[in-house]
Design a protein around this nucleic acid. Structure first.
Length: 149
DNA sequence: GCCAACGTTGGC
DNA sequence: GCCAACGTTGGC
């Protein structure tokens, strides 16, 4: 089992939304590096749910991968914000997967707070200029964040 | 709204 | 293959 971190704008999907839904599709990733990490995920893997582009950016809870990556249907949907004119059913470069709610933290672990943690210094999340929206998390980093709850 | 940093596009 | 221009991300 592996650990990950995924960013979501709470206006789109928040940890509270995921808690309400129980399970949903994680789609709309349009970056190759992030997509490759999606494809490396397996059912049972857990991830930190990070709220980005919002008043209180930070880790808001935990989710679990329910099903591994499959072609992202939003890439083929002209109505979708994530529509990719170059994608087709035969050649869809984008991946989505199904995720479930595991835990909502009592409070969001803010980005500034996370940046203060020496154990997390290697995470792309806290590194200047990094915009990666899906990234691996080591077991040590996972444990360090859990200890901050 | 600003802006730094990154990724992608497309001309050459 | 280079690289300038452009678009996007995302914190502040």
């Amino acid at each position: 089992m592996a650990y990950w971190l995924m960013k979501s704008e709470p206006d789109e999907l928040s940890i509270q939304d995921l808690a309400k839904l129980g399970q949903t599709r994680w789609d709309g990733v349009r970056n190759y590096q992030a997509r490759n990490f999606l494809r490396a995920m397996a059912a049972g893997d857990e991830f930190f749910f990070y709220h980005s582009s919002c008043p209180e950016p930070g880790i808001a809870g935990i989710g679990r991968i329910v099903a591994g990556a499959y072609p992202d249907p939003t890439a083929l949907d002209p109505q979708s914000h994530y529509y990719d004119i170059k994608a087709s059913a035969e050649k869809n470069p984008w991946s989505a997967l199904d995720v479930a709610h595991v835990e909502t933290f009592p409070k969001v672990l803010g980005l500034g707070y996370l940046k203060q943690q020496a154990e997390l210094a290697e995470m792309p999340l806290v590194q200047k200029g990094s915009r990666l929206s899906v990234m691996p998390v080591t077991a040590a980093q996972w444990a360090a964040v859990l200890a901050l709850r």
